[in-house]
Amino acid sequence: MELLISTLLFGISVGGQYALIAIGYTMVYGILRLINFAHGDVFMVAGLIGIYSTSLLTALLSNIMGAEAAAMAAVPLSLLLVLVLTVALGFCIERVAYKPLRSAPRMSVMISAIGVSYLLQNTATYITAAQPTNYPPLPFLGDTVEIAGTSIKWVVLVTPFLVLALVIVLTQLINHTKIGMAMRAVAKDFETSQLMGIKINSVISMTFVIGSALAAVGSMLYFTTYPTIVPTSGAMPGLKAFVAAVFGGIGSIPGAVIGAFLIGICENFVKILPFEGATTFVDAFTFALLIIILVFKPTGLFGEKATDKV
């Protein structure tokens, strides 16, 4: 029973973290029809920025105040820095690697995304000298709490609420603001919205900014749970989040969130299945689920049905 509850809580929390990444995938796909393979690596880089900015700020601040106070002040500041730098990174990636290819074949843009992913991973390998690094423990979120007989980190409990709050804010933004309306218009029809005078480039940049910001928040939560970061740390969560986005019907934000929670919960239950080597199948299970869903609903749970006009 305790196992079940903790598995469920853990699943929900991981699902929430996937959801934050999945939104970035699904929004970019909705607008550019691009699978942004670099998004998972942006998430990983956000983690690395967290590590380096914390240690740097702690060192800087301890010159001004005491070591104790410096450590206290460094963490919130560095989280802010993570947010700002990740958003800047996402923005720059779009401007440098995707914008010049707007009129190129779709495959070229996707390859550019793979190239960026390569670059981020390799640069991370270079900077970290291929050594695993550890995420700094966040105050409060990293503390453990006793629930139903199992000790759980606060982050596990906080994540779902934080995710829901962010998703609500995001849907409000998309449904009730001018930029949100522009985003919906561009997602519906790229060319026509251009003709209607929507500034495509600023809408796309905004999409990347939102996506990266959510990935940054996701990285804080995820790496508090799994503190070790290696350059490929972003690959699997990225892929899972992408699967979640496809699962819910790529392009649909609620779809991505629901898909992410479903995958998070399912994979944590697969881990405790009572047969030999069940853990081998955690990742495989996610994909098997995806294939099954796609066979019955070829465009995901909430995806728009593709119609070919003859």
Binding site: R33, I35, V243, V246, I250, L290, I291, T299, G300
Partner: peptide
């Protein structure tokens, strides 16, 4: 179709 096939 296209991307769905890719991910599958």
């Amino acid at each position: 179709k296209s991307d769905y096939l890719a991910i599958a």
